[in-house]
Computed example of a mutant assay.
Amino acid sequence: MESIFELDKSSKKALIILGLIFGSIVFLVIFYLSYNSNNLTKQQILEINRHEKVIDIYRDKNEHNFLFVKYSNGSVELLDYPYKIGDSISKNRGDSIEYIFRNDSVLKNNLIQQIRKYNLNN
């Protein structure tokens, strides 16, 4: 009895070649992304332009009780720095330093250094 999935020799060869090509492409994409991930992250950080105030910090039960921060422009993000309600955040595009104005002081948060510390700890 013949199986429906039997392939002749040339079809098997074509499938193997197609599989190798697909596997090579996937490997190259993963290699490129892992090799350039620090560069891509740095570019993303430098593109941020933010001038707003922290108006709320809360836990989202729908997101595993992670802390989120809500800004005065209405945007909401995962809290990745210990902001406090009332902090004014200022970061210019092209700069890695985020300035946090809190009461009568100015705190500097170097976002690229924060990412490096995070990557070293994980």
Results as ranks from 00 to 15, higher is better:
Y58Q: 04
K84H: 14
D56H: 13
I45T: 04
K70F: 06
R50L: 14
D87I: 05
K91D: 15
G74C: 06
L46N: 09
L78N: 01
G86M: 09
Y71C: 06
G86I: 11
S75T: 05
Y81A: 13
S90R: 02
S90D: 09
Y83E: 06
G94R: 07
E77F: 08
K91G: 12
S88L: 08
S88F: 12
Y83F: 13
E47C: 11
L78W: 07
Q44A: 15
N73P: 08
V69Q: 01
F66T: 01
V76R: 02
S72W: 10
Y81Q: 05
L67I: 09
G94L: 15
S75K: 13
F66Q: 08
N65Y: 04
L46T: 08
F68R: 00
Y71S: 08
T41I: 15
I45N: 09
S72F: 03
I45H: 01
E52C: 08
R50F: 09
K53S: 12
V54T: 12
I48K: 04
S75Q: 14
L79S: 01
E63P: 01
Q43L: 15
K91R: 10
D56K: 04
N62A: 11
E77H: 03
Y58L: 03
I89S: 11
L46V: 07
L79D: 00
V69P: 00
E52F: 10
K53P: 12
R93W: 01
Y58T: 02
V76E: 04
F66I: 07
Y71P: 05
G74D: 01
Y83I: 00
N65R: 02
E63C: 04
L79A: 02
N73H: 07
G74V: 08
N62S: 13
N49P: 13
V76L: 09
N65E: 14
I57G: 00
Y81P: 08
R93D: 10
E63T: 03
E47H: 09
E77D: 07
S75M: 07
L79K: 00
Y71A: 04
G74Y: 01
V76Q: 03
K61Y: 08
Y58I: 01
D56W: 07
D80A: 10
I85V: 14
Y83P: 00
G86K: 03
S75E: 11
I55V: 15
V69R: 00
P82G: 06
Q43M: 14
Y81M: 13
S75G: 10
N62W: 00
Y81T: 08
H64R: 06
L46M: 06
E47W: 08
Y81I: 12
N65W: 06
L78M: 10
N62M: 10
Y83W: 14
F68E: 00
N49M: 10
I89L: 09
E47K: 07
D80Q: 04
